[in-house]
């Protein structure tokens, strides 16, 4: 079983290397060489490769983002394609710390659908960022930096953006409710939450670019704080409060529940920095509805991952086990709803 698969893998890596080498020769000149090409993550949605280009005694450190196998297939209907993601990074680079895109590969190229960007040094693992001494100074600055980055994302004029899906809070609620009902696994806390969210809809605000997954894990942090915002594939046009609240969802505080913002900061500080850098003035209680929606969404996402086990499409013990994390979001929802009773 292993042999044909490994041959296939080697073939792909050789093709990628050759495609990158051809690009480097054109971009930097004929002496340039591609070194240390290594696959970093086996992300379900996109491949990430690390590589260095050596030219005239200089080393450029790069990242290749690539559709698995180089060919995009219909997957998460919400996720944008890689070409759109590359365009978004270009739109965001003046107002948000992001990697710089150097080259977008055509889906018909040797490499397949992919883009190259510069590699930014730092940490993405939440538990290290929240606990290691080396990030103590970073933790002090991170809340204000995230407020500024979020206002930078939300300020990008819509007319400059590539075509993106539109998704407001009620659209998302309807979508996740349909998924939940399809599983036929009744959960009273989710029923209470969905009924409450429908009954207490917030006043709509003008749609903006929403990152869609702004949280530790998708942020590069160095000893000075926020170095880059990654993983834009859930970007859409929607409500700015969605991004602010998603960062507050208890699941993304990684055990540091006392700090509402990502396990490291306080919401008022984030909202002050957001407004000071040009964002709208939101009060803390305007974030609550969106945080409740966020916890519900994450709970149903855990059910989706468990469903992959139940249906047999991914029989791993890990997919089975994640079904027993849904109750985490139930206690989070009850803690949030209790203050509204």
């Amino acid at each position: 079983m292993g042999v044909p698969r490994d041959c296939d893998k080697m073939g792909r890596q050789d093709d990628i290397l050759k495609g990158l080498q051809d690009w480097a020769g054109q971009f930097y000149g004929s002496g340039a060489t591609v070194e240390r090409l290594v696959r970093l993550s086996g992300g379900a949605s996109q491949e990430t490769w690390s590589l260095d280009v050596e030219h005239s005694g200089i080393v450029d450190e790069l990242i290749l983002r690539r559709v698995p196998g180089g060919v995009s297939v219909a997957r998460n209907s919400e996720a944008i394609d890689l070409g759109t993601e590359a365009k978004l990074l270009g739109c965001a680079e003046h107002t948000v710390p992001t990697p710089k895109v150097l080259k977008v590969f055509d889906p018909s190229s040797e490499i397949g659908e992919a883009f190259l960007m510069n590699r930014i040094a730092g940490q993405t693992i939440a538990r290290k960022i929240l606990r290691d001494d080396v990030y103590e100074n970073a933790r002090q600055c991170l809340t204000a930096q995230c407020g500024k980055a979020l206002s930078g994302i939300h300020a990008i004029p819509i007319e400059r953006l590539p075509t993106l899906p539109k998704s407001g809070g009620l659209d998302q609620l309807a979508k996740y409710e349909t998924i939940y009902r399809g599983f036929d696994i009744p959960r009273p806390v989710f029923e209470l939450t969905m009924a409450w969210l429908k009954k207490n809809q917030p006043q709509p605000v003008d749609p903006v670019l929403v990152h869609g997954d702004f949280r530790l894990g998708n942020l590069i942090v160095n000893e000075h704080g926020l170095a880059a915002v990654l993983d834009w594939e859930l970007a859409h046009l929607g409500d700015p409060r969605e991004d602010i609240a998603w960062l507050c969802v208890n699941s993304w505080r990684f055990g540091q529940s006392q700090n509402r913002v990502g396990g490291f900061g306080h919401l008022n500080e984030l909202l002050d920095a957001y407004e000071a850098s040009g964002g709208q003035n939101f009060a803390a209680d305007q974030i609550d509805w969106w945080e409740i929606l966020g916890s519900l969404k994450w709970g149903i996402m855990c059910m989706i991952m468990y469903e992959a086990f139940r249906s047999g499409s991914d029989p791993s013990v890990e997919r089975a086990a994640i079904g027993r994390r849904v109750s985490e979001t139930e206690i989070d929802l009850l803690n949030l709803l209790e203050t509204r009773a």
């Binding site: 806390v189 505080r253 027993r324 109750s327 985490e328 139930e330 206690i331 803690n335 209790e338 009773a341």
Partner: peptide
């Protein structure tokens, strides 16, 4: 606003978490 509802759901969820994830921060 139903009397006893939140208490019931909370007790049930805490019992569930004492099985599923007894160290959960919530």
């Amino acid at each position: 606003d139903t009397p006893g509802l939140l208490e019931h759901l909370k007790t049930t969820t805490i019992a569930q978490l004492s099985i599923d994830q007894p160290n959960y921060s919530g």
